[in-house]
Design a protein around this nucleic acid. Sequence first.
DNA 1: GCTTGATCTCAAGTTAGGTTGAGGTTGCAT
DNA 2: ATGCAACCTCAACCTAACTTGAGATCAAGC
Lengths: 151, 151
Amino acid sequence: MDTTLSKRDLIPIGEMARRTGLSVSAIRFYEEKSLIEPVRSPGNQRRFLRSDIRRVSFILIAQQLGLSLGEIQDEMRRLPHGRTPTAHDWRAISRSIRARLDARINELERTRDRLDGCIGCGCLSLKKCAIYNPDDRLASEGPGPRQVLRD
Amino acid sequence: MDTTLSKRDLIPIGEMARRTGLSVSAIRFYEEKSLIEPVRSPGNQRRFLRSDIRRVSFILIAQQLGLSLGEIQDEMRRLPHGRTPTAHDWRAISRSIRARLDARINELERTRDRLDGCIGCGCLSLKKCAIYNPDDRLASEGPGPRQVLRD
DNA sequence: GCTTGATCTCAAGTTAGGTTGAGGTTGCAT
DNA sequence: ATGCAACCTCAACCTAACTTGAGATCAAGC
């Protein structure tokens, strides 16, 4: 089979934007963060590989699951650069993400149950209430915006 | 019964911080955002009411559920200022929060199901994959950080 | 009266995740 | 060969949710 890079496989940034639904500036931003590493045309314009579309799709999915770009980069280290990920690659990542999802769902369900308990009791004493647990917050540190939804 | 404000009921900011687990600066910040409105001592120091502890607790809970401070303020408009919220006040808000919780859980479960589908199929074609749905993102607009977990 | 710790205000800095704009270059179609 | 859209870089700006620091004041114990 032919593994040569044909012109059709080198995608300029605008088309990349169209195909992923992202803005051009966001794509450049992701490159800056080393989430994608396009090659350059002779005239220094970005040229993306097909497999980059999938990488970007992955970024978007992971973001919806609440991962930060940093965490996403960690996950992506498992993906081969330039090579299209295999079923095996993808399954490994999916499993990792699935675990996060499960954890997050679980946490929300626990919160919901506690909230229900509060509604039931009228919850006029949050000090005693299980849903308000200051200890959960003592671990937070440093400047910058807090991760609003942490796990 | 005695409704007079005794000294014990006027809490300085440091104690407030201890009791809520927040930093002093965060409490001042919340005041700036009008989420709490402490009175002042003769020497211009903040004095919080007992009911403010509950308000702050509420803020923290709501944050954990993914509400922004702006949204929290909206919810809090339902709470009386200075007066301790009644069981009725609290139930109304709880219900509103519960609805958000349910929605979020639902969304995550849908995502999980789609992810499972992907794992099953090896998902080597994200373009066709249901989990990657660009249309969801077309509505996003404006500058600033994206709401990573939106509903 | 003095010291010490808690507070005060106000300005500036931080992180994440981008956007906006200026000023210049490329690449494709005519 | 020329025009024009698409591209480039770099610096500055943006929001959310806070923190940090400087310089001043307050409150309480000794």
